[in-house]
């Protein structure tokens, strides 16, 4: 058990944590979720048949763990929506978490991109994080997501457009506030 953990940790932990963090954008949650990933890796390593690379296998587990997390969040949000009238407050629920120090220290564009990533769908976010932040190839991304290369390209294109749109929207809102 420990040897499997150590091997995966030594080779992939930095990339794994970065992926999970940028997916959920919450440091503590990311810490909990990487624990989930390792638990699943350890429990199912005996069934890993080597059809994909270890890295692909690990990241597809990480993706499923983050999807479970989002499903749970969605259900909680739905419960809240059922209870309160969020029609006027829905936006406030989006993301009130403070920016991590590492992001605060960056320039305005990076801070802006980080905030706007929240508005992407889970699929778009997965592709953008894997392709750009993790620097993975189209094929690696497709293998992790279990998609065709063309689906990765389409989702990437739509994700980038959505991100641009959101950033423009935010800039306009800021201008409006300044006036």
């Amino acid at each position: 058990m420990r040897s499997v953990y150590e091997r995966f940790y030594d080779q992939y932990h930095t990339d794994l944590y970065r992926f999970v963090f940028y997916m959920v954008k919450d440091r503590e949650q990311a810490e909990d979720l990487v624990q989930d990933v390792y638990i699943r890796v350890i429990n199912s390593y005996s069934r890993f048949n080597g059809e994909s690379s270890e890295k692909t296998w690990l990241f597809s587990i990480a993706r499923h763990v983050t999807i479970d997390y989002f499903r749970k969040q969605k259900r909680k949000k739905k419960r809240l929506m059922d209870f309160f009238d969020w029609s006027n407050h829905g936006e406030q629920l989006q993301d009130e978490r403070p920016l991590p120090d590492e992001i605060i220290e960056q320039g305005e564009t990076i801070r802006e991109v980080y905030r706007c990533m929240e508005q992407l769908t889970v699929d778009q976010k997965s592709v953008i994080v894997l392709r750009y932040i993790q620097s993975m190839s189209i094929q690696e991304t497709a293998d992790i997501l279990g998609w065709s290369a063309s689906k990765v390209k389409t989702t990437q294109h739509r994700g980038m457009k959505a991100l641009q749109r959101q950033m423009e929207k935010q800039r306009e809102e800021e201008k409006h506030h300044e006036q």
Binding site: T14, R18, Y22, I103, E105, Q106, I110, Y132, S135, M160
Partner: peptide
Amino acid sequence: KLEHALKNMPEIKDR
């Protein structure tokens, strides 16, 4: 600019 920003997102370290 967007691609450049994404590629330069800072590394967040696991504590």
